[in-house]
Simulated assay, not measured.
Amino acid sequence: MRLDLIAIVVDDYDRAIEFFTDALGFDLVEDSPSRTNDGRPKRWVVVRPPGAETGILLARADGDRQSAVVGEQVAGRVGFFLRVDDFDEAHQRMKSAGVDFVTAPRTEPYGQVAVFVDIAGNRWDLLGPPLGRAVQ
């Protein structure tokens, strides 16, 4: 058993793909035509970090109810966690790509961390290993 996908509701497929692939360095795994449950066209768009098993389904908001949760899927909390081997390199690369960090990097017992906001407005932790230790 494994967690295969999580969904993030976004306003626009192409802008979300660009953010996740260009700014975060994820791979575009799939971008296929699909249909909603009532037969309207949509896309099945999956991105994931290189080498990761779990991916993100980028789901374009469909209707007012879904549009209302874009960027608020976890009620303003950090709800997504991106772990990297080289925190400083990833942080600098993402900042250079225009990623909006809402906190400065800090050190916690579990590692280095800085909070950033994705294209939809969701808050993420960028996580690195504790200073002086490699990722296990």
Rank of each mutant, 00 (worst) to 15 (best):
R2W: 11
D4K: 11
L5Q: 12
A7H: 11
D11E: 13
D12G: 00
Y13A: 11
Y13Q: 12
D14A: 15
D14F: 07
I17F: 06
F19Y: 10
T21E: 10
D22L: 09
D22N: 13
A23V: 05
A23G: 04
G25C: 06
D27L: 08
L28G: 03
L28H: 05
V29S: 08
E30H: 12
S32W: 11
P33C: 07
R35Y: 13
R35H: 15
R35N: 14
N37K: 11
N37G: 12
D38G: 02
G39D: 03
G39W: 05
V46W: 05
V47W: 00
R48K: 13
P50F: 08
G51V: 07
G51W: 07
A52Y: 07
E53D: 15
E53T: 10
T54S: 15
T54D: 10
G55V: 04
I56M: 09
L57M: 11
L57F: 14
L57V: 11
L58N: 02
L58G: 02
R60T: 15
D62C: 07
D62F: 14
D62K: 09
D62M: 09
D62G: 05
D62H: 15
G63S: 06
G63C: 03
G63H: 07
G63T: 03
D64K: 03
S67R: 10
S67Q: 12
S67P: 03
V69T: 10
E72Q: 12
E72T: 12
Q73A: 08
V74L: 14
A75I: 08
A75G: 13
G76T: 07
G76M: 04
R77T: 11
R77E: 11
R77L: 10
R77N: 14
V78M: 01
G79K: 05
F81Y: 13
F81G: 02
V84P: 00
V84M: 04
D86V: 01
F87A: 03
D88F: 03
D88R: 09
E89I: 10
Q92W: 00
Q92R: 15
Q92P: 01
K95M: 11
S96K: 12
A97V: 01
A97H: 06
G98H: 02
V99L: 05
V99F: 04
D100P: 01
F101Y: 01
V102F: 05
T103P: 06
T103G: 08
A104E: 11
P105V: 03
P105G: 02
R106P: 01
R106E: 15
T107L: 07
Y110R: 09
Y110V: 12
Q112A: 07
Q112N: 10
V117D: 00
V117A: 04
D118M: 04
D118Y: 03
D118R: 05
A120H: 00
N122Y: 06
R123S: 04
R123W: 02
L126K: 02
L126H: 01
L126Q: 00
L127S: 15
L127T: 12
G128Q: 03
G128I: 02
P130C: 04
P130M: 05
L131I: 15
L131V: 13
L131Q: 12
G132L: 06
R133V: 12
R133H: 15
R133I: 13
A134V: 14
A134F: 09
A134S: 13
A134M: 13
V135Q: 14
V135W: 11
Q136F: 14
Q136V: 13
